Amino acid sequence: MQISKLALGILASALLQFNPAQADELVRFDSAGTRPSAFLERKAREQGVTLPDVPITHLQGYLSRPPGDGPFPAVVVMHGCGGIHPNTKTYWPQRLISWGYVVLVVDSFTTRGIEDTCQRYLPERVFDAYGALDYLSTLPFVDAGHVALIGFSAGGIAALEATKTEGDEQLMDRKFKAAVGYYPVCAPHAGDATVPTLILNGDLDDWSPVERCRQRVSHLSGKGPSVELDVYPGAYHDFDAPDVATPKIKLGHREEYNAAAAEQSFIRVKAFLHQYLQN
């Protein structure tokens, strides 16, 4: 069977336009470091003390991008306490790319030799998020001024911690534009956020109780960026994850995909990101 010259031309054009970064590309970068304040540096000099270096962790992640030259807005994705699963490694990047975003999924565990953090919290993940932001800012196809942070479960905690007032965000040169937390464990008295924030939770989630997030929202000063809470009736932890279509119990907590809640949340997140990253 012969292939027409037109078909060959189309195929060649498609191959020439293909960029390997459009698929999952393994990339390496460092977690963000923090510099001592000018006050601490001055005091150290006066006292003849050498301040300790801030440890930097070498990380890896998975980069995906839409076709074209950009620059595109971008989203940093933080996985849950069990590590990278299909929901954060595949389903969400595909969804975000279709919406026009570059996506960097941060792997906080592999280079640290960690299997999970489901019984503890890893505060260094805030610095991982900002390291990802710094890395994205070096890429010519990324609009570094329009990058959001989205996290799931423990990654959602990291997203909220990374964007709260009086948090580590004030130590960073580059800032996120918006934040999204799927079923995080909220800190009721965390205070205001530094960027517009969207929290999504199921009302039946017994791992990330929605009441804690309601308290967080109720304690806002009203002077900072908006922090919105969407609650989905009948939804459990991991309600957006098709890989848990069969309900399971983990450490005594129920995880279960809820197609209706998931779809509603996707519509909500798409509109939220468009509002703050593409307007």
Rank of each mutant, 00 (worst) to 15 (best):
P196A: 12
R268Y: 09
L198M: 13
V210C: 10
S218P: 02
V227A: 04
A261F: 04
A259E: 09
Y183A: 05
K248Y: 02
V217E: 11
A262Y: 07
A260S: 11
V185S: 14
G191H: 11
E256M: 07
N258S: 11
A259C: 03
I199S: 07
L229Y: 08
I267A: 15
T194V: 14
N201A: 15
R214H: 09
V244N: 00
L220E: 11
V231D: 04
R268S: 14
V217W: 04
A235F: 02
C186E: 06
Q264E: 15
T246E: 12
D205T: 09
F239L: 01
A179D: 00
E228D: 14
D230I: 01
G252D: 08
A193N: 11
P196K: 12
E263H: 14
P184S: 10
A260P: 00
I267N: 15
A190M: 08
T194G: 14
V185D: 04
V217I: 11
K250I: 08
P196L: 09
I267T: 15
L198F: 13
V231F: 06
V210G: 08
L220H: 02
F266M: 14
D192L: 10
H219V: 00
P225R: 08
Y236D: 01
P247C: 03
L204W: 13
L200E: 01
A235I: 00
Y183C: 04
V195R: 08
K250Q: 12
A241K: 05
P242Y: 10
A245Q: 06
H237A: 05
D243W: 09
P184A: 10
V180M: 07
L229R: 08
I199Q: 06
V217P: 01
V180I: 10
S218F: 02
V244T: 07
A245G: 01
R214F: 01
